[in-house]
């Protein structure tokens, strides 16, 4: 049995949803960053799956680029978390609400 495109897409959608739910539900900055990574990877899965379907390597190349950028993203994110810790800010996103209205 070959694994068909729909299955890949379904799995990626599930991954995407898991990531999104993570962003929506978790309050720790680190977990949120993690959830974002999950979502990025779901995109990568989609890209690769389509790439195989369409033929050619464009999708796979794009997936690689996405991975690289995801890494940079995390670096910045973690840096921010460190800076926040240094300012003795509570690491709970629900408490980050001085800016509102």
């Amino acid at each position: 049995m070959t694994v068909g495109l729909p299955l890949f897409l379904a799995i990626s959608a599930i991954l995407f949803s898991i990531g999104l739910v993570g962003v929506l539900l978790r309050r720790s900055p680190l977990t949120i960053l993690l959830s974002l990574e999950v979502m990025l990877n779901s995109v990568n899965l989609t890209l690769v799956a389509f790439s195989r379907e369409v033929g050619g390597s464009d999708g796979q190349i794009f997936a690689l680029i996405v991975m690289g950028i995801a890494a940079a993203e995390v670096v910045v994110g973690l840096g921010l978390v460190v800076a926040m810790t240094r300012r003795e800010m509570v690491l709970d996103t629900d408490e980050l609400r001085t800016l509102n209205g």
Binding site: L36, T46, E53, V76, M84, R87, T93, L96, T98, L99
Partner: peptide, 30 residues
Amino acid sequence: RASLEASFKYLVLGTLGSIVLVYGAAFLYG
């Protein structure tokens, strides 16, 4: 602190936006 808070929010939401964009691009690619 507001600067950091803003940055974090921007990072999270901005990444989310980028992900959605790429996801969409992937479908169009498909």
